[in-house]
Write a protein that binds this DNA or RNA. Structure first.
Lengths: 198, 198
DNA sequence: GCTTAATCATCAGTGTACCGCCTTTTATCG
DNA sequence: CGATAAAAGGCGGTACACTGATGATTAAGC
């Protein structure tokens, strides 16, 4: 029955099993509530033991902390990441930026539009290769990157402040190891190592 | 022109410097490219050393792996998380679900609508408290939770398969520690511990 | 009982993130 | 040189994630 993809990922024709009949509020409803097989499954691998779930939660917490520290700048973590890359790699095209940031190229375009509207970056077609649109910081953008850096750094610190320095280092090392081992997923393959981040 | 909020989030009045003037494509552009102060900042705390950035990347990788393993089911990680909670807590209202999942209540409503359209859950107003909308799995939903569980579990394993068992345990322990220490962010305060997840 | 406050759901709006398809431009091959 | 392939950007669509505001219902205080 295929059930197709979800989440914009493909799914040009998500018809799904075509079941829309409401449950009868009667009969089997109660069995449903206490299905022992399901309970056993959920207990064997509960939410809070699924690494993917934990990582998603931590990601959201970082967002919250970031906004707490960086309120007033009106910049999101992704936007600041993009600005950071532009600060060391001016005149980068969107594919390069996507690889460096590890996000999708269409998403990079979206973010760039917002940053351009705010006057933080400027975009123009490359003269060498007229397919490419190059982006660079404006002086306003440079200024903002600099002024906002302490707040951003504070947010990074706060995310891990519950850990001892040893555990923190270990955690970061493991994170980097995982990223390196899985650096093949998504439309953007994370080519950060190709840039001068050394 | 105020530049409004970002990302819907707070910032009740983040007016930011209110700059929208485009750069003149002339003059100071080249200085921008090689601003030494910015380069120093970026080198002091590059992207790949920012825990928030690393966590975001890992989160995305989990998504990619999840879809690889669970393709054909058309279920996202969040959707499966919600179904998992419903499998042990039938007839939960949306606020309870939001707290258990650690996501926003409006988001829970969105996800529930999609799951209902696919016939995996049923929703109805509570008779005791007519403000609440209760959700429960349909038999189709129960079936899917069960059939999909191995693929989901495989995705969880694959995320950490690059680690040795000791490092994996350490990583999970640290993740849980961080979540516990930061269990106060976001509109959902993560009341998972209040539910029967033990 | 009536006013007020709290709670739950929903709507509108913004931002991130991804996919598939299409057009333009460049590179490549015969 | 002309056809074809490859690369870059853009568009439309879907799913998450959260804020703020509004309306309905319940609970609390008088």
């Amino acid at each position: 029955m295929t059930e197709k993809k979800q989440r914009g990922r493909a799914a040009p024709d998500s018809k799904t099993p075509a079941v829309t009949e409401k449950i009868a509020e009667t009969a089997s409803a109660d069995d449903a509530a206490s299905n022992p097989a399901l309970k056993a499954l959920a207990e064997r691998l509960p939410l809070w033991r699924r690494p993917g779930y934990l990582v998603r939660r931590l990601h959201q917490i970082h967002y919250a902390i970031f906004f707490e520290e960086c309120d007033g700048f009106g910049i999101t973590p992704v936007q600041y990441g993009l600005l950071t890359i532009l600060s060391t790699n001016p005149d980068a095209d969107q594919v390069t930026l996507a690889n460096a940031l590890g996000i999708d190229r269409t998403n990079v375009a979206d973010v760039l539009v917002r940053l351009e509207q705010r006057g933080l970056i400027a975009r123009m077609r490359s003269q060498n290769d007229r397919r490419m649109v190059l982006a660079r910081l404006t002086s306003v953008g440079e200024d903002l990157v600099e002024r906002m850096h302490p707040a951003m750094a504070k947010a990074q610190d706060r995310l891990l402040e519950a850990l001892g320095s040893e555990e923190r280092d270990q955690f970061l090392a493991t994170l980097m190891r995982l990223l390196e081992a899985n650096n093949k997923y998504g439309r953007a393959t994370l080519g950060a190592s190709k840039m001068d981040h050394t």
